Computed example of a mutant assay.
Amino acid sequence: MNEIEKRLEKRLLAQQEAMQKVIAAYGMTGDPDRKIALLRQALEVDPSVYNGYVALGYAYWYEKGDLVAAEECFRKELDYHPDNYQAACDLAALYAEQQEWTAALSWMKEAVRIRPESAKDFDNDPRFDVLRANPARGLRKGAGALTDLSAADDHWTESNGRGYNNAVCVSNHGRTRICAAIDGV
Rank of each mutant, 00 (worst) to 15 (best):
8 L>P: 00
9 E>S: 02
9 E>N: 03
10 K>L: 04
14 A>I: 01
15 Q>P: 00
17 E>C: 00
25 A>G: 09
27 G>L: 12
28 M>P: 04
28 M>D: 01
29 T>M: 10
31 D>V: 01
32 P>V: 11
32 P>T: 04
33 D>N: 11
34 R>H: 06
34 R>V: 00
34 R>C: 02
35 K>W: 09
35 K>Q: 14
35 K>C: 03
37 A>D: 08
39 L>Y: 08
44 E>C: 01
44 E>T: 13
47 P>R: 07
47 P>M: 03
48 S>W: 06
51 N>R: 14
53 Y>M: 07
54 V>W: 05
55 A>E: 14
56 L>A: 12
60 Y>E: 12
60 Y>N: 14
61 W>C: 08
61 W>V: 04
61 W>Q: 15
62 Y>F: 12
63 E>R: 02
64 K>L: 07
64 K>A: 11
65 G>D: 09
67 L>Q: 13
68 V>K: 14
70 A>W: 10
71 E>M: 08
73 C>K: 10
73 C>G: 07
74 F>R: 09
76 K>T: 15
76 K>P: 01
77 E>Y: 06
77 E>F: 04
77 E>H: 08
80 Y>F: 15
81 H>W: 15
81 H>Y: 11
82 P>T: 05
83 D>C: 04
83 D>T: 15
83 D>R: 15
85 Y>C: 10
86 Q>W: 14
89 C>Y: 05
91 L>W: 03
92 A>G: 11
93 A>V: 03
94 L>E: 11
94 L>Y: 10
95 Y>C: 05
96 A>I: 01
96 A>L: 01
98 Q>L: 14
98 Q>G: 11
101 W>N: 12
101 W>V: 05
102 T>D: 13
102 T>W: 10
102 T>I: 11
103 A>E: 15
106 S>E: 12
108 M>R: 09
108 M>C: 09
109 K>G: 04
111 A>T: 06
111 A>I: 07
112 V>S: 08
112 V>N: 07
113 R>C: 05
113 R>L: 09
113 R>A: 07
114 I>K: 06
114 I>G: 08
114 I>N: 09
117 E>N: 12
117 E>C: 08
118 S>W: 07
124 N>E: 09
124 N>Q: 06
125 D>K: 02
126 P>F: 03
127 R>Y: 03
129 D>C: 01
129 D>E: 12
130 V>D: 07
130 V>T: 11
134 N>C: 03
135 P>M: 11
135 P>T: 12
136 A>N: 12
137 R>D: 13
139 L>S: 05
142 G>L: 13
144 G>F: 14
146 L>Q: 07
